[in-house]
Write a protein that binds this DNA or RNA. Structure first.
Lengths: 246, 246
DNA sequence: TACACCAAGTTGGTATACCTAATTGCAACA
DNA sequence: TGTTGCAATTAGGTATACCAACTTGGTGTA
């Protein structure tokens, strides 16, 4: 196992220095490595390997792995750890969850969001528009959905959406490859904001549901179609039999 | 801090013996202590105190605390830890999340659940009926909703419902105090199963939404009303200003 | 009496040593 | 040649020592 990110030059063992910073930084670095596919889905992770690669001791490594596990980015594999595989069934399931939660959230947002809240969301959308940087587009797309959900003023709902977007983050970069689909998604986002601004809960909800569903369908089709090609690039995509419960 | 559960008589430091068992047992004991209110909401937890009280070392204590944090049963408080307070706004928010997720789940269950799946759920309901033990009723009530959600065959949805029920577990015992409300909730559960059996998605969804909403309203009213009395019993209930996001 | 200041204790963060289970490799034997 | 068995290695689980930040209590001075 090699260090996916350049290790800090002087990560000397300053025990206890600026509390939590070490653990948080390590977590962020591991998280980025997983999301950037520097650590490939399905890859084995060993605590001692990460310890060496990131110049941290096992305690913060374990803490980071546990946090990654709760985010669905790492999993236990027997006694050990693996980077969470990309699971096409999970992607489908998360889309269903998102549709349920986000449509409910936007209905609440219609009631609760202030005009300035909505203006802020619209602004976020506008500033994200011109970006050509793919990574930035993906991040902005995820942010939009999280910000939209947050207008419901319901923290657990926001957390649920954020969690789903995190789990989907590694695959969503696939969907924005073409400028077409990029433009398409952006227009749908704008339509949702317009309906929200018009305080039309049913329209906003319906537009959002359609957006989530269609975007996900394209993504899943793409993933299934490109499966062979992606595998050749070292990215394996599993398809677990639908498990009724976790 | 005293040991809320009887410490194991011979919890000698058998390092590494039966892997994970120590950590899991500690987690379960801490979790039970929180859910049983042996550790009171808002109470300070220190890693060294728990280490001493439960005869475990800090490593599994920290792991257990981190897991409790992801379940919403413990929180960071500055550098330290506290048992998660009972937050009436969080309860309201979780009810909204549940309504969104569970109604969507039951609609999916109408399409996907087999007759035997539904029969199993009905059986769970029947066997839970005669129980007079309050704690058992609460557990069964939570189990019902989780099992119902699981019939959608969507693991993230099931996890979301389970997580919400866990966060609500410490307050739900309040709602079943009267045989009336107990009976009431049980009847509503039965009606949902009947609609599910009849493959009537809209009816099942509507019944479930009403059930969740009305049960939660009763609970929140009760909590607000009994706030003073509960505080006298050492149970403080906070009401955080609605935070738009976590 | 009030307040500034310092020392001791407490606490979470980190590093690391040790334990046992599981895996791996090789060798001896059938 | 295939299989069994043991030893070395690896890896996660656990215990614990040490660090720095923070808290607390008391003391001495203004």
């Amino acid at each position: 196992m090699t260090a996916p990110s350049p290790p800090p030059s002087a990560a000397s063992a300053r025990a206890g220095a600026d509390a939590g910073s070490q653990t948080l930084q390590l977590f962020e670095r591991l998280r980025s490595a997983v999301l950037n596919l520097d650590l490939m889905p399905g890859e084995r992770l060993t605590e001692r390997g990460l310890e060496a690669a990131y110049h941290a001791s096992r305690t913060p490594v374990r803490a980071a792995l546990m946090r990654l596990e709760t985010e669905g980015l790492a999993q236990r594999d027997g006694r050990g750890w693996i980077v969470a595989p990309i699971d096409i069934d999970e992607i489908r399931a998360l889309a269903e969850l998102r549709e349920a939660v986000e449509t409910a959230a936007v209905r609440l947002a219609v009631q609760r969001a202030s005009d300035s809240d909505i203006a802020g969301l619209a602004e976020l959308l506008e500033t994200a528009r011109p970006t050509e940087d793919e990574e930035e587009v993906v991040r902005a797309g995820g942010d939009f959905h999280v910000e939209l959900a947050s207008l419901a003023g319901n923290a657990p709902m926001t957390d649920a959406v954020r969690g789903a977007m995190t789990r989907l983050a590694r695959t969503r970069w696939l969907e924005v490859r073409t400028p077409d689909s990029r433009e398409h998604a952006w227009n749908e986002h704008r339509a949702v904001v317009a309906a929200l601004r018009a305080r039309d809960a049913s329209l906003a909800s319906e537009l959002l549901a359609t957006h989530i569903r269609s975007t996900n369908e394209r993504l899943v089709e793409h993933l299934a179609g490109e499966r062979r090609r992606l595998r050749a690039r070292g990215l394996s995509i599993v398809e677990s039999p639908t498990r009724p419960a976790s």
